[in-house]
């Protein structure tokens, strides 16, 4: 459903330019949950923004359901890392969730119904009338997830979605993501810098190199379902995969832990 071929992008030009993507090839099948990991600053977000149509890549092609991405595709929703700046503080939680549904041409009662259903799925059915800033960080991110779910996208993009919450909330949100994808026929592309997380939630883990990013690893995660925070993480397969992903993220040389433009 998603075909990315030889995607490149450079920010700026001249000596101050930053070569973020160095030819990324990736294809994602319908219904997959693909995690993308890589060292920080390697261009993961650039990749996601290209898929979302928020950024025009310098070169290469992104095909979404066979059609090249120009502008934001209709069947796509995004969950950003910074929930407090991605939710609108002047709207109630329910209004935040139902706002994108206007694009689908739903009338008001049906928008409200869909918003309530999505909020129920993330366990926030009571919070519709509240404002985002009246909720904790984890709850705000659940609202952002509900907003994406209500939209019923074919492809859900998540950009470091659990990067700004505490460890306990993070685990809850990971399980929430696994639970809701069971209810919807969605393909999910989740970006993270957390190796454990990528192995825990993903069907597939794609490892990017430091900038300019290329795909250096593509591993299938064959852990028993359903995943469970304690049991899955002590499964021998989990331990083996996270070591493998860890080595790929670090790169072939031990010194390449903090890759600089000169070393690549």
């Amino acid at each position: 459903m998603l075909e990315i071929s030889n995607l490149t992008h450079t920010y700026g030009s001249g000596p101050g330019s930053h070569h973020a993507l160095g030819g990324v090839d990736l294809s994602v099948a319908e219904g997959e949950l693909v995690c993308i990991v890589g060292p920080s600053g390697c261009g993961k977000s650039t990749l996601l923004r290209s898929v979302a149509g928020l950024l025009r890549p310098g070169g290469g092609e992104v095909l979404f359901n066979g059609a090249p991405v120009a502008g934001t595709p209709k069947d796509l929703a995004v969950v950003f890392q910074d929930y407090s700046r991605s939710l609108f503080p002047w709207m109630s939680v329910a209004d935040n969730v139902s706002l994108p549904l206007r694009r689908k041409g739903l009338d008001r009662p049906r928008r409200e119904e869909a918003a309530l259903e999505a909020l129920t799925q993330v366990g926030l059915e009571e919070a519709g009338a509240k404002y985002p800033w009246q909720l904790s960080g984890g709850m705000q991110q659940r609202v952002a997830i509900a907003r994406a779910l209500a939209y019923r996208p074919a492809l859900l993009l998540m950009d470091e979605p659990f990067g700004s919450v505490d460890a306990q909330t993070r685990e809850d949100l990971e399980d929430l993501t696994l639970r809701v994808r069971g209810h919807h026929a969605m393909t999910i592309l989740l970006i993270t810098h957390d190796i454990d997380e990528s192995v825990y939630v993903g069907d597939r883990v794609v490892v990017l190199s430091g900038a300019p990013a290329t795909v250096v690893g593509d591993l299938r995660v064959d852990l028993p379902e359903p995943r469970e925070q304690i049991a899955t993480r002590e499964h021998p397969g989990f331990v083996r995969l996270r070591a493998e992903v860890g080595r790929l993220v670090r790169g072939p040389r031990p010194a390449a832990q903090h890759p600089t433009p000169e070393t690549v």
Binding site: A52, G53, L54, T72, K74, L76, A77, V78, F80, D82, R85, S86, F88, W90, M91, L99, P100, R102, R103, R147, Y151
Partner: peptide
Amino acid sequence: DPLHLETAAAFGLSRGQRLLRVVLPS
């Protein structure tokens, strides 16, 4: 906030909706 505008763009809000529901309240 650029992220507000990016969110609006990602969810495909029309020009009018973006102006009325994001830019104006901001």
